[in-house]
């Protein structure tokens, strides 16, 4: 299925969870510093493993970086 991840189309297997997507994006589930929103709603870390993504969803994955 196709998702939009950080503004770009991305092919992932059907049934991919947010947790699996985060690993694909090199985000450590254990580490602090990153968070995700699915279709404009924040997905708490505690739900990453159970949250199965659906085709067409928009996922934004943010991380802390340098900034004023």
């Amino acid at each position: 299925m196709t998702l939009t991840v950080n503004g770009k189309a991305m092919q992932v297997p059907a049934g991919t969870t947010l947790h699996q997507l985060m690993i694909m994006m090199s985000v450590s589930a254990a580490g602090r510093g990153s968070a995700a929103a699915v279709d404009g709603v924040v997905a708490p870390r505690s739900r990453w493993e159970s949250l199965e993504l659906r085709a067409g969803q928009h996922v934004e994955i943010l991380t802390a970086t340098q900034g004023g």
């Binding site: 985000v27 934004e60 994955i61 802390a64 970086t65 004023g68």
Partner: peptide, 17 residues
Amino acid sequence: CTVSMRRVDTTTPGSML
């Protein structure tokens, strides 16, 4: 110190945090 939230970029070296 302040930090910004930006899209994950796997090419960013090192960890700010």
